[in-house]
Simulated scan of single mutants.
Amino acid sequence: MNSLAQIIITVGGVATACLTVFGIFKSVAGHLSSAKERARLQAERNIAQDKDIERLKEENQLICYGLSAALDGLEQLGANHSVPVAKNKLQKYLNKQAHR
């Protein structure tokens, strides 16, 4: 009877150990899968943000060129108060950005 109890205890211990190892393995696999998914989502967000930034840069470039043309037209019409100052600052800014 004593050896049967010992066998049952041993089998129970082995089964518990196996289930524990399986649980740990499953947990680690789930964590790695989750980390890969988070990395993939972050990469997708980065690509979308890069596209948005590029679109905004193009839009800002067009706005600056339009503003430059408007300031040039105002200067040609004789608006000399702060128009030449603003036009010069804008030209300096655009030149600085072009050489960046």
Rank of each mutant, 00 (worst) to 15 (best):
A17Y: 07
R40H: 10
K36T: 09
F25C: 07
E44D: 08
G23P: 02
K26G: 07
L19M: 10
K36L: 02
F22I: 15
S33F: 08
T16F: 14
V11A: 14
A43F: 00
E37M: 09
A15Q: 10
G13F: 04
F22C: 07
Q42W: 01
K36W: 01
V11Q: 13
S33T: 13
I24R: 08
L32D: 08
H31C: 01
R40F: 04
T16Q: 08
L19F: 12
E44W: 03
I24K: 12
K26T: 14
H31A: 12
L41T: 11
K26V: 10
E37G: 06
K36H: 03
S27H: 03
G12R: 10
F25T: 14
G23Q: 07
G12H: 03
G13T: 02
V14G: 01
S34W: 08
E37R: 04
Q42F: 04
L19S: 13
A29F: 05
R38Y: 13
A15Y: 05
S34G: 09
A39H: 00
V11F: 09
A29P: 03
I24Y: 09
V28F: 09
L41C: 03
A15M: 12
V21Y: 02
K26I: 11
A35C: 05
E44P: 03
A39K: 11
A17C: 11
L32G: 02
L41V: 13
R40S: 09
A15S: 11
A15W: 07
A39L: 04
A35F: 04
A15H: 04
F25Y: 11
L19V: 09
S34N: 14
V11R: 06
K36Y: 00
A29N: 11
H31N: 14
V28M: 06
V21Q: 05
S27V: 02
I24M: 08
K36N: 10
R38Q: 14
I24S: 08
